[in-house]
């Protein structure tokens, strides 16, 4: 296995640690995109993030990948800390598996990503208030429209 694959596997394992024990194996083992959507989103996007962290941190690729992961974690039974914790885990994973890597530069990128993750987490929670409001508007839209039209 290439080092990067090994890092990804270890990182994934760290990211699912937040879930109840019985679920960890399912999230890890089941590869079907539709039978294991949570694991799939996590795996796909961690791979993108890893490439970017070891590479150039291109925002147009980093941001959507991070968003996809956080969006899932923001609605699950996780605290804010647990939702973003996986980002920090990368530092030690890389430290263990690829000690030759420039820890300082990676550390900076991880910090940057972590800050983005916090932002995204807050955005998701805010989004939930917004969609909640929109839903209640739609639920009574006809009477509201009638009132507007003076019907």
């Amino acid at each position: 296995m290439r080092t990067e694959d090994a890092i990804l596997e270890r990182w994934f394992a760290r990211a699912v640690e937040a879930y109840p024990g019985e679920t960890v194996r399912f999230l890890t083992a089941e590869r079907d995109q539709f039978r294991n959507p949570v694991g799939h989103v996590l795996r796909e996007n961690l791979a993108v993030l890893l490439r970017e962290l070891l590479g150039g941190m291109e925002p147009s690729r980093t941001k959507p990948a991070l968003e996809a992961i956080i969006r899932v974690r923001a609605v699950q039974e996780l605290t804010a800390t647990q939702a973003v914790e996986f980002v920090f885990a990368l530092r030690s994973v890389v430290g263990e598996l690829a000690p030759e890597h420039d820890a300082l530069s990676l550390g900076r990128k991880v910090d940057q990503l972590a800050l983005m993750a916090f932002d995204e987490y807050v955005r998701c929670r805010e989004k939930m208030y917004e969609i909640r409001l929109n839903e209640s508007r739609r639920a009574l839209s006809v009477p509201a429209a009638m009132a507007r039209m003076g019907s």
Partner: peptide, 14 residues
């Protein structure tokens, strides 16, 4: 350096 300090609250595995 340790990452463990971030693990403030673990979901208790049922």
């Amino acid at each position: 350096m340790t990452d463990n300090r971030h693990k403030i609250e673990q979901v208790p595995p049922r």
